[in-house]
Amino acid sequence: MNVAQQAINGLVIGSGYACVALGWTILLGAARLVNFAHGQMYMLAAFICWFILTRSGIGYPLAAAISIVAMALLGVGMQLMMGRLVMTQNLTSLMIVTLGFGYILQGVAGLLFGGAPHTITTELVQQKIQFGDVWFTSQELLIFVVTLILYGVVWLVLQRTRQGAIIRSVAEDPKLAQLFGIDSRSVYIAIFVLEAVLVALAAVLVAPRTPILTSMGFEEVIITFVIVVLGGIGNVGGALIVGMLLGLFTSFFGALVTPAYTTAAIFAVLLAFLIAKPEGLRTR
């Protein structure tokens, strides 16, 4: 086994996981909302990008941008429909409603794009960067770098800016925030749009690495869930670290044992961790 190569693969997979999870970290951690349509939104964003790339002469960056805008609009639509559930932070109902949304998205995508696997082809996936006996693609480097930057920016915004304080205040008590002159409804819409934009960005970055299917999404939402819970709810730094560790785990487990059972193994790790340390890596 080439340990260095497995480590690089692990970091690439891990930054992909972390990237996909970032929107959820903000949603649950900062705003105390959930969105179980997250995985299907990932799928849909990937398919929109794929569709534009194959049906038009538009390049990857623009196709990715269009896909992100489309998901932002979808995020606004979902929020407007969920209005009151959101203001009362009714997590159980939100879970059911967003799960429902996810199934609807999956059905619609199945009708539109069919059940066959497709690949998003970008030039960056084909560019190999080689150092001695380890290599990675330009796309993988892009995933890694963009994820680190996004996490840094999100952390700074949440902790160091007035906008971040507004998000945290609405998360804690949307009703009280109104008395501070804050339009809590609009803040929720903004957070949801941010979630949609981040998952779309993750999709157009990460999905080109593997074939895409309209039935995908479950694994993405589960891994996201694991990252957010293990990282400590609301802990952006914790989510990044856990994402990377899960990636390394996936890579080495795949190489040393078998790639077939990595998801099951990740769950075993989650269970063991939650039993040993119910509060996550670090509660805030």
């Binding site: 804690e172 109104q178 008395l179 501070f180 809590s184």
Partner: peptide
């Protein structure tokens, strides 16, 4: 007017009970 607009308009209300953000 919704409450946040009344607040912005100078009607300042300090309610009974929880009236500050504990995590800020």
């Amino acid at each position: 007017l919704p409450p946040h607009q009344r607040s912005r308009g100078g009607l300042q209300h300090v309610p009974e009970g929880k009236n500050v953000f504990s995590e800020l």
